[in-house]
């Protein structure tokens, strides 16, 4: 699954002005960014806005992006991590737009329920929330964004080996919490 398009060729074509390449690039980037944003933000509306912002920022920076051995998806998720952090601050620090408050009782499912449909996923979300931020971020880049250990390393400034060790520790921590809850 996840047949990775040849990032380098596609990015090059996009830089050279191929509309089709830009679209293919966005089509590839977008679902992964949205998954990550949904996982980090838990709200579809905010996550979609952030995803749009990330896509625009990716395109804006495309001409400056040089393939210096840093994988393209690391470049994308370095942007995504910043945008999500901004949105998280804006959304959860009491800066929720007034327009988001419904006029009357709202019988639609809550934001988290809209994003996560099954109990296991909600449990996973809650479990991940017990992790320290850096471990959680690392696992979300792997699980939600779908990056490789190498790509995560390039986002977080770690060696791939350090990523592998850190993700193992994070998983063990989750196992301990899950085991304790059982």
């Amino acid at each position: 699954m996840s047949p990775l398009v040849d990032d380098v060729a596609l990015v090059l074509a996009a830089q050279q002005g191929s509309d089709a390449a830009v679209r293919d690039l966005l089509a590839q980037v977008r679902p992964a960014v949205l998954r990550y944003a949904l996982a980090r933000l838990g709200r579809r509306d905010v996550a979609e806005d952030v995803t749009q912002e990330v896509c625009l920022a990716v395109l804006t920076g495309l001409s400056r992006y040089e393939d210096t051995g840093r994988p393209f998806r690391s470049y994308v998720f370095a942007i995504a991590a910043h945008k999500v952090a901004d949105a998280h601050r804006a959304t959860y620090r009491g800066a929720v737009a007034v327009a988001d408050v419904p006029d009357g009782p709202d019988d639609s499912p809550g934001p988290e329920e809209q994003v996560l449909r099954n109990d296991e996923a909600r449990a996973a979300h809650a479990l991940l929330d017990t992790l320290p931020d850096d471990q959680r971020e690392l696992l979300l880049l792997r699980v939600a964004a779908g990056l490789s250990a190498e790509e995560v390393g390039a986002v977080l400034g770690m060696s791939p080996g350090a990523v592998r060790v850190a993700q193992h520790r994070a998983l063990n921590r989750l196992r301990a919490v899950a085991g304790g809850a059982r």
Partner: peptide, 20 residues
């Protein structure tokens, strides 16, 4: 491993949520 399976389920749900 139940924790890994839980994470896989999480990802599957996110896939569904993010699918075009």
């Amino acid at each position: 491993d139940p924790t890994l399976l839980l994470l896989a389920s999480y990802r599957a749900d996110l896939d569904e949520a993010a699918a075009p």
